[in-house]
């Protein structure tokens, strides 16, 4: 939709513990846009339960615009792809997820250095998670995207330490994010609109944590392409 690249070349470009290319990041945003579109109703339904029912729509609009931006001005580096995506999300989402995800991708874009190794990516990813924590002032357990992102970042760092390959590392990271998102179900929200609901926020998965898990799952999906 937003990229003319050959998907089979993606895996080949960075497989076997290789380097994450600009194409990888473009493919990542392309897959996020697809998954957000597919899961728009689920995200909106989660948000309808404890929020204002716009999370799926907002992210769909935002990541569609990211695809357009990356097509109109093809990035020449991973950092440029991340900065462009982040800026687009900040400007086009309209809800709280815009500045949060936008700041995360921009922080990643500023932190990555070429060539982007898995270790470099992990460090940049953590910088992105820290940006979300600092802007939103949320900590793990507040029932926010942080509950998916922090375990994901920790798992990715451990995978790097253990010398795990790119595909397996991203699979482990995606699983940690998904588990983190599901673990928000019994929590009582302490940040965002859901916090006004108090006890009634218990029993619902946090939509921000769910979309964070989706974004991280796309890493694993794109890494698996061509394998």
């Amino acid at each position: 939709m937003s990229t003319s690249m050959d998907p089979d070349s993606v895996g080949g470009d960075f497989a076997d513990g290789g380097v994450l290319t600009t194409d990888f990041f473009v493919a990542w945003f392309d897959d996020i846009a697809k998954q957000v579109r597919l899961q728009r109703e689920r995200l909106t339904a989660l948000d309808a339960a404890i929020g204002d029912a716009d999370h799926g729509t907002n992210l769909d609009r935002g990541f569609t615009e990211v695809g357009k931006a990356l097509t109109d001005s093809p990035p020449t580096s991973p950092g440029q792809a991340l900065l462009s995506a982040g800026t687009t999300l900040i400007r086009r989402v309209g809800g709280a997820s815009g500045p949060l995800y936008g700041s995360a991708f921009r922080a990643m874009g500023k932190a990555v250095e070429e060539p982007v190794t898995l270790a470099g990516f992990a460090a940049a990813f953590d910088a992105g998670v820290v940006a979300v924590e600092q802007l939103g002032k949320a900590v793990p357990g507040d029932k926010t995207m942080v509950d998916a992102l922090v375990p994901a970042s920790r798992t990715l760092a451990l995978a790097v330490r253990d010398g795990v390959g790119v595909r397996e590392a991203f699979e482990l990271t995606a699983r940690a994010a998904e588990e983190g998102a599901r673990a928000t179900i019994p929590l009582r929200a302490r940040k965002g609109r859901a916090s006004y609901l108090g006890e009634r926020s218990i029993g619902h998965e946090d939509p921000g944590a769910a979309s964070s898990a989706l974004i991280v799952a796309s890493l694993a999906t794109v890494a698996a392409v061509g394998s």
Binding site: G94, A96, G98, R193
Partner: peptide, 10 residues
């Protein structure tokens, strides 16, 4: 509140 605060902080 909410996104207004986060966007303003940027």
């Amino acid at each position: 509140l909410g996104s207004s605060v986060l966007t303003a902080r940027l």
